[in-house]
Amino acid sequence: MFNDKRVGISCPALQAIEPVLNSWINCTQRYIDVWEGGDLPYWYNEQANVSILAGAAWKADWTAIEEYQIIKIATEADEKTSVIGRNDLYIADDKNGYCIEAKIAYVPIDDLTAARDRILGKCKLATFEAGRLDYDEPKVGAVFIAPYSLAKPASIEQIEAFQTMLLALPNDALAWVCPTDAQKAPSHDNKRYPMVALLLLNG
C-alpha cells in the first residue's frame, strides 16, 4: 500500500537515530518546497545527499561533520595497515554517535530486479567502507536510493511495487519520503524521481 513517508528501525543499536531520519524527511520536503518542485536534492550526487542528512541532524538537535579525516584499515597481501582517509559523515547527540559511509543508487522504478541488484551492490560497498573505519563507535553503511521513471511520471502502482521491494531488502533501518511536487519537473536527462529512500546497515 502506498505510503508517502516511512521510518522503520529494526536494529536496537540504531534506534536513537530515529529523530534524525524524521528530520531528513522534513528537510528533503523543505528543499523541494523552496524550489517549488523545480529542483530535487536527491537527484544530485552522493555528497549532496549526505549534506541533507547532515542538515537534518542539526535540525534534530544533533551535531554533524562531513568529509573529515579519520584512520582507515587497509588490507594488502593479508596484512592490515592503517592509512589516513576520510569519513563521509559523523553525527552525534550527547549520548550516541555514528560514523556513516554513504553511497547512492539511482535505479529504474520499472525494473525491480535491476534496481534490487544495484541497491544490494551499493549496500555491500557502503558496509565494507564503514567496516574499514578505525573507530570504536557504531559504524553504519548508508545507501540513498533514488528510483526514477523515464520521461513520464511514475504511477502509484509503480511506487507501491518499489516500496514493497525495498521492505524485502536486508536493512537495519529504512526511511523514505515521496515528497509533494517531486515529479513536477524532470531532471536534466528527462527522468522523474518520485521518492527517495535511505537504507542503513551496521558496518
Rank of each mutant, 00 (worst) to 15 (best):
C27Y: 03
G203R: 08
S82V: 06
I104W: 03
E36F: 14
K184E: 09
G38S: 13
Y193T: 02
V34D: 11
L112W: 03
N190D: 15
L169G: 02
E160N: 14
N202S: 04
N49Y: 03
A60R: 01
Q29N: 09
K124C: 13
A114H: 15
V140R: 07
G8C: 02
Y68N: 09
E18M: 10
I9R: 04
Q163C: 03
I91D: 01
G55R: 00
A142Y: 03
E157L: 15
V143P: 01
A92D: 06
A175Q: 04
K184V: 03
A57H: 07
A154F: 12
I71P: 13
V143S: 07
F128M: 12
V34E: 10
S155N: 07
G55L: 01
E46R: 04
M195I: 07
D136L: 12
T81G: 14
V7Q: 11
D181R: 08
P108M: 08
G38W: 15
D88C: 11
Y106L: 02
E46S: 03
T28L: 06
Y106N: 02
N3L: 06
Y135P: 04
K80D: 13
L40R: 06
E137V: 15
E129Q: 07
F162D: 11
T28C: 12
T81F: 08
N3P: 11
V177S: 14
A74N: 15
S187H: 07
P153G: 14
P12L: 12
A56T: 06
K139R: 09
A161C: 06
A182H: 12
A56Y: 04
A175E: 00
P108S: 10
I104G: 07
E101M: 02
A142L: 08
Y135I: 13
E67V: 10
N171A: 08
A182R: 04
N202M: 09
Y106D: 01
I32Y: 02
K139C: 12
Y31C: 00
L169F: 01
I73D: 14
A56L: 06
G38D: 11
A57F: 08
G55F: 03
E79Q: 08
I119H: 05
G203M: 04
P19S: 04
N87Q: 14
P138V: 05
A173G: 07
I159S: 09
Q158R: 15
R86G: 01
F162T: 15
L120C: 03
P186G: 01
D33L: 10
A64K: 05
T81I: 13
L125N: 05
R132A: 01
D4N: 10
D88W: 04
D39W: 14
L125T: 08
F2S: 06
V177M: 10
D111Q: 13
G131Y: 01
Y90W: 15
C178M: 00
I145W: 10
A161R: 05
T180G: 12
A114I: 08
L14G: 03
C27W: 06
I65A: 11
L199S: 07
Y68K: 09
W35R: 13
L40S: 04
A56H: 05
K191I: 01
D78Y: 12
D136C: 13
E101Q: 11
A57D: 03
N22F: 07
Y98K: 08
V20M: 06
L14C: 09
Y193D: 00
N45F: 00
K152Y: 11
V177R: 09
T113I: 14
L201S: 04
